[in-house]
């Protein structure tokens, strides 16, 4: 294992490259979605993977956990799952006459909430406090979760029977909603060759440590965001609230998430400053799932991503502010 130390953090692209290459051993041709998921983790957020069955959602989560060297726990969400099955439960210890808290699977580094929409809203909401505040309260006692803590949830958007739509508050806790997508023909052929014998996930080694990830998260928060880029981010969020097809747009948490993911994307490219390209790249994943669309949009089948694209087209990018003396072309020709 070649773990990156905090001292070597400036070589962010190397760190990112190692993780992406490692995940690519398992997931063929999905570097973009992997990079966005990694950006979400670096920004300290939680990821919702939404796609059809068999596209590699669970594999992406497992590969990321293995690559980052984080403790991993998986919970298969089912309708009979109880909140205490996730958070833990207090058990009476007659020896001491006290209740002892037995931590649930949520006390881990990366929690894979597989098929999260199969659990009841009550159980889904058990994750709210943990995802929002990094803690679990049980019987009036608050237990801190160890950092880093990441929830990667998967859900299948095509099946509706026996599923419960995630509440808006729950969706808002997910920093990014990503879709893995089907591989191309060539990628699928390559994948078949790789997975012919042993699945590479079993041999996947960590290329970073939790300490590396914490240091990287800290460095990401230090990436510079210009004032008018902040206005651009706020403008995007505001436009989602004003869009005619949107009943409930992105809130301040959406703006914060957009800024965080943009910072992470900039850091991953080795930059110390954020550009509008980072914001635009992050916007669909950060904003689309937070939009509560009006009935007419649902009837038309307009996805949230289309609304975000609309918003991105409407909001001017801050490029040049203030007058800059411009020489006429003719003057340039006379003085080549």
């Amino acid at each position: 294992m070649t773990a990156m130390t905090a001292a070597s953090l400036p070589t962010a692209p190397a760190f990112v490259g190692r993780v992406l290459d490692n995940v690519a051993r398992v997931l063929v041709g999905k570097n973009d979605v992997t990079a966005l998921a990694l950006a979400g983790i670096l920004a300290g957020g939680h990821i919702l993977l939404e796609d059809a069955p068999g596209t590699g959602k669970t594999m992406l989560a497992r590969a990321l956990a293995a690559s980052l060297g984080l403790p991993f726990a998986r919970v298969q969400f089912t309708p009979d799952l109880l909140p205490s099955d996730i958070t833990g439960v207090s058990v009476y210890r007659p020896a001491t006459g006290t209740f002892e808290f037995v931590p649930g699977p949520i006390f881990t580094g990366i929690l894979l909430a597989d098929e999260i929409n199969r659990a009841t809203p009550k159980t889904q909401s058990a994750l709210l406090e943990a995802m929002g505040e990094g803690q679990v309260t049980e019987s009036g006692v608050t237990h801190r979760l160890a950092a880093p803590f990441v929830v990667i949830a998967t859900q299948n958007p095509v099946e509706h029977e026996g599923t419960y739509r995630l509440p808006e508050a729950q969706l808002d806790r997910f920093l990014l909603r990503l879709s893995v997508g089907y591989p191309t023909l060539e990628e699928e052929v390559q994948m078949l060759g790789r997975l012919q014998s042993l699945h590479p996930i079993h041999a996947l080694e960590a290329v970073a440590t939790p300490a590396d990830l914490l240091a990287a998260q800290s460095a990401v928060r230090g990436v510079f965001v210009a004032e008018d880029l902040r206005r651009y981010i706020s403008g995007l969020a505001a436009r989602t609230r004003q869009h005619p097809l949107v009943a409930l747009g992105g809130g301040p948490r959406a703006s914060l998430g957009l800024q965080g993911v943009a910072q992470a994307l900039a850091w991953m490219e080795g930059r110390t400053f954020t550009t509008p390209d980072d914001v635009q790249r992050a916007a669909p994943g950060v904003l689309a799932h937070r939009l509560s669309l009006r009935v007419e949009a649902r009837l038309q089948g307009t996805p949230g991503e289309a609304v975000v694209a609309d918003v991105l087209r409407a909001e001017p990018v801050p490029v040049e502010s203030g007058p800059v003396e411009v020489q006429p072309v003719s003057k340039l020709i006379s003085h080549p």
């Binding site: 510079f224 210009a226 110390t272 550009t275």
Partner: peptide, 8 residues
């Protein structure tokens, strides 16, 4: 231009 405009 990017670092000039956005803080690099």
């Amino acid at each position: 231009y990017a670092p000039v405009r956005y803080g690099g």
